[in-house]
Design a protein around this nucleic acid. Sequence first.
DNA 1: ATACAACCTCACGTCACGTGAGGTTCAAGC
DNA 2: GCTTGAACCTCACGTGACGTGAGGTTGTAT
Lengths: 237, 237
Amino acid sequence: MRSRRWRVGELASATGTTVRALHHYEEAGLLAAAERTSGDHRLYDEAGVERLYRIRALRGLGMSLEEIKKAIEDGSILADLLRTHLNRVELEVDRIVRLRDRLRSITQSGKQVSADDLLATLDAMSCVERHVHARRRKKKANDSDVESQWRILADQLRACMSGGERPSSKRTIALASQARSLMKSFADGDAEVLSALARLRIADPPRDLAGWTPDLIRYLDRALAALDKHLTTKLEP
Amino acid sequence: MRSRRWRVGELASATGTTVRALHHYEEAGLLAAAERTSGDHRLYDEAGVERLYRIRALRGLGMSLEEIKKAIEDGSILADLLRTHLNRVELEVDRIVRLRDRLRSITQSGKQVSADDLLATLDAMSCVERHVHARRRKKKANDSDVESQWRILADQLRACMSGGERPSSKRTIALASQARSLMKSFADGDAEVLSALARLRIADPPRDLAGWTPDLIRYLDRALAALDKHLTTKLEP
DNA sequence: ATACAACCTCACGTCACGTGAGGTTCAAGC
DNA sequence: GCTTGAACCTCACGTGACGTGAGGTTGTAT
């Protein structure tokens, strides 16, 4: 029972990547060939194809290769990643359609193009590019600050949970709001994708920080839901 | 009559770019502030906003900053660039909708995801990213080869034009086909955008190559149109 | 005067590859 | 078996559009 195999050029061409990228992923410890021929040619299998999809999807979500490396060993379910990816693509469709509509309106109006038109167009353009920005912002700056904030937040949230406070209590909601702020700084405001990433245990809160146990994360999820409900109620026009 | 002014941070924030990028564009000779305050703060005007739009739109079309610098001094009409940009965005909408539809179909099917599904998804993903690839491919490799090919092609096409051949003659169409191949290698197959870029005198054929006069470019345009008509007639099922 | 945000220039660093060099392997055709 | 050319290998320098931080000045509000 010999399963399918792809040489590096075949895989690159079938997936629209490059041989160089596949080499690079192997060097980076992300994706090794299933085997080598006697002549040392790489042969990838179906598991490799799936792994390549994971790599490229997570990269599209703004993660660096180093982060992808960590995330990809999680044994997360492919279907979850597909859903997260789809959510992200839906957002991108919305953004680019918005830009298209703006450009259509400008080019069809026959009037002189105003500076405000161009400013708004430029802003829409940067929204389309936003995922690239998010990737590049993931630098070391203030990592220790962010980590200590997460740790403090975990302590406070655990006190609420241990003390039997409902996720919708005033205090818990305030902490959830803080958590949201921290999370926003990671993924540039895409709250919906963020919560999906959190479920994938990829995004903040960092998994390797003491205190952020699965039950605490679930508690935070419920607090975030309560926060959303609270905000919706409060903001009804 | 004092027109509007933006400080660098205001412009960056209104357009979704960064202060650093605006600094960089100034260094690169792409976009200078209209004036400076007594404290040396930059002040941009409406012409600067327009120029920033041009820069970002051309960058989105895959050009390097150096190429943008050349292109932007052409005195081309803003409306033409807006149209070209819109054409490009329409293509991008198509591509990302295709990817979204594929992801929807996979996540909703409830069946095991096959390697072929993933291969096709990865390919669709790379189509979405295609403009980034085109930018990165503009390297020195084979520039002299490409230039000589363009030169030879110009000579041959001029012979047809001077000899009074219609753009739809067999020989002219064959040359147009060759031109299309050369153009494809530049912009990764986006023929529609390519012809728009050619009209903007941005893309190939290179403007600084002897022989590619405006009348010859117009002749090529007509030959390309005749080629398209010829192909459509030939390929009718 | 003080405080803080926004600004200035300078300059090293980034990251996911691109590119080319120099060589080997593979497969098809004769 | 030999030849040819495409596909493959490893190695390693280079890339480009900024990101980031340092150290200082300017502008505005209190």
